[in-house]
Simulated scan of single mutants.
Amino acid sequence: MLVIEAKRAQYSLTVAIPQALAYMLADTNTEKPVFGFVTNGNEFRFIKLIKGVIPQYALSDLFALDSRDDLYTVIKILKRLADLIRNS
């Protein structure tokens, strides 16, 4: 499962992360990790949630459109996540 949460450019991604995590926690499959992606159109961050007795999540580095190769990296990660979801 992949959750995507988008906010307006003037918002910090920090505002979107709790909302994305709430959607991610709603997934009933506890055996596989849940992936999330938050964006405000300029910045991008990925989230990985592992459910268990105590759910744990990790955030990726922050990617931004104005950074040299960040958009390429974001697209590459999204393609990889699509492959994981398709093959699961």
Results as ranks from 00 to 15, higher is better:
K32D: 00
A58S: 15
K51M: 06
K51N: 00
Y72S: 14
F44E: 08
I47G: 12
V53F: 00
I50Y: 09
T39R: 07
K76N: 11
N29D: 12
P33E: 01
S60M: 02
T30Q: 06
Y72W: 04
V74G: 01
N29I: 10
L25I: 11
Y72N: 14
D27A: 13
D27C: 13
A64E: 15
A64T: 15
G41Y: 10
S67F: 06
G52E: 00
K76I: 15
G41C: 09
A58F: 14
A58T: 15
A26L: 10
L49D: 11
E31Y: 04
K51E: 01
L71W: 01
F46K: 04
P33R: 12
K76M: 15
T39N: 09
Y72H: 11
I75Y: 09
R68W: 09
E43F: 07
T39L: 08
K32L: 01
T73L: 06
Y23R: 13
A22S: 15
Q56C: 02
D27Q: 09
N42C: 09
R45K: 12
T28Y: 12
K48M: 12
G41K: 08
E43Y: 11
P33Q: 10
F44R: 08
F44N: 08
F63T: 08
L49N: 11
Y23L: 08
Y57R: 07
Y57C: 03
R45F: 08
T30N: 04
D69M: 10
M24G: 02
A26V: 03
I77F: 02
L78C: 13
K48F: 08
D66H: 08
I47E: 12
K51S: 00
K51I: 00
S67L: 00
G36N: 09
V34I: 13
Y23A: 12
D61I: 07
F44L: 14
I47V: 15
F37Q: 02
V38L: 10
L71R: 02
V53H: 01
D70H: 04
E43I: 09
F44C: 07
K76F: 14
N40T: 14
T73I: 07
R45T: 13
D70G: 07
V38D: 01
Y72T: 15
I54T: 05
I77E: 03
D66E: 10
K48P: 02
T73E: 02
V38I: 14
Y72K: 11
L62R: 09
T39H: 11
V38F: 03
L25S: 14
G41M: 10
S67H: 12
F46L: 03
D69W: 07
P55T: 01
G52A: 08
P55F: 01
V53R: 03
D66P: 05
L25H: 07
D27E: 06
Y23N: 15
K48C: 06
T39V: 11
K51T: 00
G41I: 11
A58W: 14
L71N: 02
V74F: 04
D66A: 04
L49V: 13
S67P: 00
D66R: 06
I50A: 06
L62S: 04
V53M: 00
K48I: 13
